[in-house]
């Protein structure tokens, strides 16, 4: 079942990020298998409302993943 804002509101902040990460990771892994852990870590720094939106919208997720990859590669260079 889809993750909702009310489900998140029922658990502590740290657990909210855990729930979001568990949902986002497999989607990101499909796009970037080798960087999925790092990308998920970066995206979890965003607001939960944005993360929920990314779970609902592949387009939105893909765009943020692309941004994260660019930042990650620049950082690693």
């Amino acid at each position: 079942q889809p993750l909702t804002a009310s489900m998140l509101a029922a658990v502590p902040p740290q657990e909210q990020k855990q729930m979001l990460g568990e949902r986002l990771f497999p989607l990101i892994q499909d796009m970037h298998p080798s960087l999925a852990g790092k990308i998920t870590g970066m995206l979890l720094e965003m607001d939960n409302s944005e993360l929920l939106h990314m779970l609902e919208s592949t387009e939105s997720l893909r765009s943020k993943v692309d941004e994260a990859v660019a930042v990650l590669k620049a950082h690693q260079a």
Binding site: P13, Q14, Q18, G21, K38, G41, L72
Partner: peptide
């Protein structure tokens, strides 16, 4: 920050430790 350990890595099934100050 821009240190070597950034960004914190998420691993499924492992408790997330990336954001300690939320």
């Amino acid at each position: 920050g821009t240190n070597a350990s950034w960004p914190p890595e998420f691993c499924p099934g492992v408790p997330w430790k990336g954001l300690q100050n939320i």
